[in-house]
Design a protein around this nucleic acid. Structure first.
Lengths: 152, 152
DNA sequence: ATTAACTCTATAGGAGTAATAGAAATTGAA
DNA sequence: TTCAATTTCTATTACTCCTATAGAGTTAAT
């Protein structure tokens, strides 16, 4: 009968991106209160430390976090938590929000198999899907993660 | 400066899934008008023929298309084009619509790094995103691809 | 029978993910 | 000034999955 019993192949957000969001959430709780060290964030959030180092470095290059080097150093959030959206982080680590390259705003590419983009039957619908996802992912910010969680 | 010049790593719909949607669109145009052969669909849609064979077979196992074997055989759509959604096809080939396994309806899995799911700060927002994407992808059907494209 | 098509399984190459390792640079403090 | 702690950066590994191809098997029309 060929029934698919299990499928872990699901395309989702990468772990890197998820870890980034969790780390940013930690940093947001500490916003304007100094810096946190990689090792501490790693332990608190169950993220492999060396992997988290890479992630924080990328976030630094994207100017979302800042760092203090050397002994007693660490990372801190530069941007306001309300101005760091899931969309921003997703684009940085996982790329396009659109499901097809030809309907992506930031990562546009022509589909190889498409002879004529204008006559593509799927574009109109996939633009709608992209817009829905884009709006929701832009509205969800790091701040929205913390605003109710500390019974504040 | 370490500027990322190019990134083709974007997570999107797989080619398999895109090819499936294109093939289904072809079959929908021929709905209730007999069958089409793999080779013809492959040529019309610029899809590698042997790859398309696999895809149509999977769609058959999912009871979305039917087939007629032997010489002169081919594939035809079983389901009404209005009842085959992007969500259905996406789930079949690419898996979960949700961005995190822990907020997926059909492909739920616990996040390894999450100690306590109830206290996860991100769940609420990611459920919203999933719901938006789910609704849009369920509303977009194969029929919605063809309804205006033939100036009908 | 022969031909043409679907059915099924296997496999290969390439790409990307997740994670680890280690050396270099920087800073604070003893 | 030396040491220790931390960030910075590059390389590399193991693994998985995607894309595509190949070929043998099965079915049905002529």
């Amino acid at each position: 009968m060929n029934i698919k019993l299990f499928s872990i192949f699901t395309i989702m957000m990468s772990k890197k991106c998820k870890y980034a969001l969790k780390a940013l959430t930690r940093l947001a709780k500490n916003y304007n209160k100094g810096h946190l060290q990689t090792a501490d964030i790693a332990k608190l959030e169950n993220i492999p430390k060396k992997f988290l180092e890479q992630i924080l470095l990328e976030l630094k290059h994207a100017r979302i976090v800042g760092s203090k080097q050397g002994s007693g150093g660490g990372y801190f959030l530069i941007k306001n938590p309300k101005e760091v959206s899931v969309a921003d982080v997703y684009r940085l680590f996982d790329g396009a929000i659109a499901l097809l390259p030809c309907v992506s705003i930031n990562f546009y590419e022509k589909c190889e198999d498409c002879t004529d983009e204008k006559s593509c039957a799927m574009q109109r619908e996939f633009i709608k899907i992209r817009e829905g996802a884009r709006k929701l992912m832009s509205k969800a910010t790091i701040y929205s993660f913390i605003k109710d969680s500390d019974s504040q």
